[in-house]
Simulated scan of single mutants.
Amino acid sequence: PLHFGRSLTYRFAASAAVALGAVTGHTPLTPGASRRIASGSLRHFLDRGALTDDGLLGGGWYGPHEASLQGYSGPASPYWASKAFVALLAPAGHAFWTAREEPAPVEESDRVLALPAPGLLVQATRADGIVRLHNHGSDHVRPHEGETAAEDDPHYGRQAYSTRTGPTAPGNVADNHLSVETGGRSSVRRRIHPLGAGHGDGWGWAASWHRPVFAGGPPMVPGLRVESVTVARGRHELRVHRVVGAPEGSRLTHTGWATGPEEPLTSALYGLHGWDDPSPIPVRAPQGTAWTRWAHVPRLTGRCAGTSVHVVLASLTADADAAPLSEAVEEVRVDDGTVEVAWAGGTARTRITFEPVEVRHTER
């Protein structure tokens, strides 16, 4: 299950859509794949301590986790998880029950899928079963609302989410976040404006722009905006940011995935262009995530003023023998707002342009 959005304490209620599709016949999945997803979601939480000693669902994700709750969450909120049992509307002889469970799509092959309407990019790797969601369009700001840093929501504002990590808690270093620092204040991302998304064979992209929002003074700097593009290929995430209208003396920070010290995961970040040092510094998040009591987050820093382009390569993997990110790219060219990346082995090139945003990727 993916740790993204509101009402996460409902846990396996997310599988209700899959079950209802199977019951009504409105689904692209086979009955066996549908049951694999529904039963797998239920087992995922039950096998990881979601039930209390009294056999009840408590507030949180696996066990208790306050940062996973919303202000409206109450003692009975976790029981919205019962929506998953819409599958029980299927009679005993229904194929949902009689068909043999089949692998879910992510268990069969690597997948990259762009969803242009919500501005999302899904990236899945079969080897470790991790699914990553790159967010370039779904926020928690209503159309009539203004943007304030006080309403920053870690479950919507981060650049990426996954099935093996959760966002860090408010007050801790933010994971998967680009922050503009000016006048002693750091920005958050609130309203997200999609700029497009697409995918090809084994790769995909999504893009958006936002106005950095600051606390403790004027919420915005006139003319300041950030345009962001994510390109997913295999386990690699190419993240490109174009900062426009930054005051002199401004700085940037960029973070990667938050992982715990005992988790069999590697969170890597490598600066390709526009950073003080290509190697990140690990920063501790003492309140951790829904997966771990405390976490490390890799962080890059750099300067920005006026218009500047910053390129990062990120990765989250359970492969202990994964090659370092410094070996994944052979060449990076940044010229007048155009970014061109030659991937290792000479097999692929990615070209990103702004005004308007266009992404081209070729495999040889």
Rank of each mutant, 00 (worst) to 15 (best):
G58F: 06
P324E: 10
D201Y: 04
G93N: 11
H44I: 00
T182E: 02
G5W: 06
G245C: 03
V334R: 00
G166F: 12
P222C: 05
R242W: 07
L265A: 06
E263K: 04
Y10Q: 01
P143R: 05
T362E: 12
G234A: 00
T353N: 06
N172A: 15
V188S: 10
D321N: 10
L42Q: 08
W205P: 03
D110K: 03
V240L: 02
A344R: 08
G204L: 00
F214K: 07
L121D: 06
S34Y: 05
V297S: 01
E363I: 04
R233Y: 11
R142T: 11
R293D: 14
A16M: 14
H210R: 04
R164P: 11
S208V: 00
V341L: 11
P278D: 09
T338V: 13
G288A: 04
R100I: 05
I281D: 13
R100K: 11
G59F: 05
H236T: 12
A320Q: 15
R351Q: 05
G21C: 02
W291K: 01
G198K: 05
V231S: 02
S68P: 01
R191Q: 09
V141N: 02
V332P: 02
L133K: 06
R239I: 13
L57I: 07
L51Q: 08
S208H: 13
R11D: 08
K83W: 14
T353Q: 08
S138W: 11
Q70S: 14
G5Y: 04
L56G: 10
R351A: 05
G260Q: 04
A232F: 02
P78Y: 05
V339N: 00
P28F: 06
L20V: 15
E358V: 01
R6Q: 14
E151A: 15
P28G: 06
H210V: 04
D153K: 03
E340S: 10
P103N: 01
E181W: 07
V334I: 01
E327Y: 06
V226I: 08
S34D: 07
N172E: 15
A268V: 11
R284P: 00
H254A: 13
V243P: 05
W291V: 03
T9S: 14
A342E: 09
A127S: 12
N172L: 07
T255V: 09
S208F: 05
S279D: 14
L313M: 03
L20D: 12
H177K: 05
V329R: 00
H254F: 12
P264S: 04
V122Y: 02
D152N: 14
P264I: 04
A114L: 00
T301C: 12
Y62V: 10
S279E: 15
G59W: 03
R299L: 10
L300G: 08
S39R: 14
G198I: 02
E147R: 09
A160C: 11
S308T: 14
D321K: 09
I281R: 15
S39A: 14
P1D: 12
T289W: 00
L325I: 04
H136S: 09
H254G: 08
T307C: 01
S186W: 10
R191D: 10
A150K: 12
S279W: 12
L113R: 13
L238C: 06
L115Y: 04
P154D: 05
R235V: 09
G40C: 09
E340Q: 11
L88Q: 11
S315V: 11
E102L: 06
G59Q: 13
Y156T: 13
G146F: 07
L195T: 03
H193V: 15
G204C: 01
S73V: 02
L121M: 09
F4S: 05
